[in-house]
């Protein structure tokens, strides 16, 4: 009886409470999200479109954009392959040390990005573990593109695997076992059963990974060497421009980065709307 009475009052309070909650959420979002975002775009466009275009079309800026796209592409592809392998292994097989493996996959989330960068300096720096050998063989890793890719891969490693493991675990091994009894080979099972079952989750993981890879600053800053036109990614280029009193250009590149993030968000929203309307699809 008491519970029912409570329920009745809470339903009666519903609309007011709902409005207050909605109000708080909206004010919060406006203050901390929309306002700064609008500020970035308004500062970027404060001297007109042609200045904005010049800032983005300048050689150092285009090279930063290209590098960011290249690094993002490579690290997302690598993490796609790794994430699929790891989640497949974890979800479909039993082996000792499984929970340790899951913890290891989560490690990059708990390590500060600066440390992630320094790890590679310690390994591949001139006086690092492999430094002498690399130098003798003229292989450049840190302060060059490979180092930036490595650091980005490290930082974004959990996204795909973390997205796929719960989905695969929820689905169990039933479908695969059925395919096996029907005579499908290992690859056939993977491409025709496992992969289609998780594709939306996979895409979602890729998008999250992509967003983080494009925006990574800390780890990349440590291994980049900040060579203009060569090892500057977009976030680093924004910092450089800002430090050169070139505020409009800094915000122009920042706004481009924000735009890329918004495209990613839009794709994610599109995926979610697909996902909820698809029968038997995994919950994201």
């Amino acid at each position: 009886m008491l519970i029912q009475a409570h329920r009745a009052t809470s339903i009666a309070e519903g609309p007011t409470l709902r409005r207050i909650l909605l109000g708080i959420t909206l004010i919060f979002l406006t203050l901390f999200l929309l306002f700064p975002l609008a500020a970035v775009f308004s500062e970027a466009l404060s001297q007109g479109l042609s200045v904005y275009w010049q800032a983005i079309n300048e050689p150092d800026a285009t090279s930063a954009i290209r590098l960011t796209l290249l690094v993002t592409g490579l690290s997302v592809s690598l993490n796609l392959v790794f994430g699929l392998c790891a989640s497949w292994a974890v979800a479909k097989f039993s082996f000792p040390g499984k929970s340790l493996l899951i913890t290891l996959i989560d490690l990059p989330f708990s390590v500060s990005p600066v440390i992630s960068g320094l790890i590679y300096v310690l390994l591949f720096g001139a006086h690092g573990l492999f430094g002498a050998w690399l130098k003798a063989n003229d292989v450049e890793i840190i302060f060059a593109v490979p180092g930036i890719v490595l650091a980005t891969v490290f930082v974004t490693l959990p996204f795909v695997a973390r997205e796929l493991i719960p989905i695969m675990e929820a689905q169990g091994r039933g479908d695969e076992e059925a395919a096996r009894t029907l005579g499908a080979s290992g690859w056939q099972i993977f491409f025709r059963v496992t992969l289609p079952n998780v594709k939306w989750g996979l895409l979602y993981g890729v998008l999250l990974c992509n967003a983080r890879a494009m925006g990574e600053f800390g780890a990349v800053s440590v291994v980049s060497g900040h060579i203009r036109g060569m090892t500057n990614t977009m976030p680093l280029h924004v910092e450089i421009l800002y430090n050169e009193y070139n505020f409009v250009a800094a915000f122009a590149v920042a706004s481009l980065l924000a735009l890329l993030a918004l495209v990613t968000l839009a794709l994610k929203a599109l995926l979610e709307s697909h996902n909820t309307n698809t029968p038997n699809a995994p919950r994201l």
Partner: peptide
């Protein structure tokens, strides 16, 4: 000529670590 800028001590550290 390509440039890299930063705090002087930090830049020296990078050259020691292999910045070319």
């Amino acid at each position: 000529v390509r440039m890299s800028h930063g705090g002087s001590g930090k830049q020296a550290r990078s050259v020691i670590d292999g910045l070319e």
